[in-house]
Design a protein around this nucleic acid. Structure first.
Lengths: 131, 131
DNA sequence: TTTCATTAGTTACTGGTGGTAACCTAGATA
DNA sequence: TATCTAGGTTACCACCAGTAACTAATGAAA
């Protein structure tokens, strides 16, 4: 069972043809986009319906919600289940793959949370210096 | 020295007014953007000049490189040093703050690297199913 | 029987931004 | 005189994220 050795130096992002670098990049982009990780976070505690998610995700539009969920579904991070009822019911939930991403994103979130003020201050200084 | 307790559930991204949520979001966005983390990665091993970075970062334009470096500098993740020489010399390096971000990003990179193929496969399946 | 409400979206439109190509400044070199 | 280099800037365009408005199908209310 030779453990596969990942060597994810940052440069793998532009260099290494280990897996498809385009796919690799698009994953990073997904993590960074405005809604994806928020939605994953919301689904963490159980399945949710479209309208629930829309209400929880303050500020998102239907279009963006649909779009983001579709992408997450395409990547296999989220599962979509439709029930043939009236009115229609659709439930979204995180997959195991999606769940496995959470700790890593949480690490970023933690860093961001810990340094938000510092960065805000840096920006003020910079903007003041440049005028 | 009461340690500050971070509680960075994902929802902090939309809910908590701990630090500025907009700043928080913008940090996530920075991490996810096309060039920022690649550049931080490249500067990990030491200072680099503009043209070096441009050559290393295959595919980036001068404009995008300038822009990305400026943003990183504004956030305090990267330091810019100009030397009054002819021809001009400018050196970019990571700051301590920038360096502190690396492990978290590396965790994401590792996850991405480990699941690139799985996700690529998911996408193919999805696209095939939708036609 | 005409209206309203609900769910899970879709459509038409717009503004911001990522990207390209061309240009700039200043001195050194040939 | 022309060209090269470093580190950018400027003008420009195309695309896509985001918004507001609309939709299908049904049941309930008046």
């Amino acid at each position: 069972m030779s453990e596969q050795v990942h060597e994810p130096r940052m440069q793998s992002m532009c260099e290494g043809p280990q897996g498809d670098p385009e796919v690799f990049r698009s994953i990073l982009a997904r993590v960074g986009d405005k809604w994806s990780m928020m939605l994953i976070g919301m689904l963490q505690e159980g399945p949710r319906r479209f309208t629930e998610l829309k209400a929880m995700t303050q500020g998102i539009s239907s279009r963006m919600l649909t779009q983001t969920l579709r992408q997450l579904e395409r990547d296999g991070l989220v599962k979509r289940e439709m029930f043939a009822e009236i009115p229609p019911r659709v439930e979204y939930s995180v997959t195991d793959l999606g769940r496995s991403l959470i700790p890593a994103v949480l690490a970023i979130a933690e860093w961001a949370s810990a340094h938000t003020n510092e960065i805000a201050a840096n920006r003020e200084d910079y903007d003041a210096a440049v005028e």
